[in-house]
């Protein structure tokens, strides 16, 4: 008798409830792609992000104004006046180009900070989780100390010592921010290294580094991506916070955080100066948060924050 696929009926858990544990990278990603297709939240988040990134790159490039062009004859203009879409600030600088430039700086800071997180966290967590034992013990103790020190305090101290600026914010955030990623990767390593395919590749003579970087990390990629998406708004928030207390990006540069905190000072008379950067800031953070949450539900249904 011939067995055909149609003859069988699925009696396990409903298809969409199956967990996507890392069995075969290709199948896993195909599965994820299928789940993501048609997900309205993910699609709209990605569209908004694309618009933000495109605007951040191109608006300052093609605008008639630059971020530091002052025009003292047309200061504090309102919406759509004098050829300025969003008006101007107290020095007559065009708010439209400044907000887009601010978005660019905020995104650059967020992406670079997250990249540092990723590299340091992955290497640290990867080594600790893979080798285990004494190495893991020591590395986790060190990590615990870093975690126990309130990170905002260290970031502020670093900013004072290193002189405020874009690179400093990135470095300061990166110096502290990697711990979450390291823990995550370590947990994944500990789980995955017991799998058969690791044993198989070791049997075939693969070295530790090859197993970590070719076998284990690609399989933890889903959780890592989710974590990264959720780290970006936290980096943007940190930058805005630092800007507010005067340790942010320095003039002539401006980030969304500095624009918003500048706007606060003249909010009562010129509300647009606060509201426009604030809307950009909040939309950016909200989009990344929503995207991360949704991705987490899709990629990694079992995980808890």
């Amino acid at each position: 008798m011939q067995y055909k696929a149609e003859m069988f009926e699925w009696t396990g858990p409903a298809k969409e409830e199956q967990t996507l544990s890392g069995s075969g990278a290709a199948g896993y990603w195909k599965d994820v792609r299928q789940r993501l297709r048609g997900n309205k939240v993910v699609t709209s988040c990605l569209v908004i992000l694309l618009l933000l990134v495109a605007g951040a790159i191109f608006v300052p490039l093609f605008s008639r104004y630059s971020i530091s062009d002052q025009d003292l004859s047309s200061t504090n203009l309102g919406w759509m006046t004098g050829g300025h879409l969003f008006g101007t600030d107290k020095l007559g600088r065009d708010l439209f180009v400044r907000v887009w430039y601010g978005t660019r700086i905020s995104l650059i800071i967020a992406f670079s900070a997250v990249l540092i997180d990723l590299v340091v966290g992955m290497v640290y967590g990867g080594i600790a989780g893979y080798f285990g034992g004494k190495t893991d013990e020591i590395m986790m103790r060190v990590l615990e100390v870093v975690v126990a020190i309130p990170y905002m305090i260290i970031v502020i101290l670093l900013m004072i010592v290193l002189k405020p600026g874009v690179t400093t914010i990135i470095l300061a955030y990166g110096a502290i921010g990697w711990t979450g990623m390291a823990r995550l990767v370590r947990g994944q390593m500990m789980q995955l290294k017991e799998k058969e395919y690791v044993l198989a590749s070791r049997l075939l003579g693969a070295g530790s580094w090859r197993i970590i970087f070719r076998g284990l990390i690609p399989n933890s990629l889903g959780v890592i991506i989710v974590n990264l998406t959720l780290t970006i708004p936290s980096a943007i928030f940190t930058e805005a916070f630092l800007s507010y207390i005067g340790l942010g990006v320095q003039i002539p540069l401006a980030s969304l955080g500095t624009l918003a905190s500048e706007g606060i000072t003249s909010f009562q008379t010129y509300p647009g100066l606060l509201i426009i950067p604030a809307v950009f800031l909040c939309v950016t953070m909200l989009t990344f948060n929503l995207l991360g949450d949704t991705l987490r539900d899709v990629i990694d249904p079992k995980s808890k924050e």
């Binding site: 708004p233 916070f241 955080g257 918003a260 905190s261 606060l274 909040c282 953070m285 948060n289």
Partner: peptide, 22 residues
């Protein structure tokens, strides 16, 4: 909850202070 994590407190604080308190 989404608004809570997406609006920095300095913006929220200034806005509420203006609209509610003032």
């Amino acid at each position: 909850a989404a608004i809570g994590i997406s609006v920095p407190s300095f913006i929220l604080g200034s806005l509420l202070q203006y609209f509610l308190a003032l």
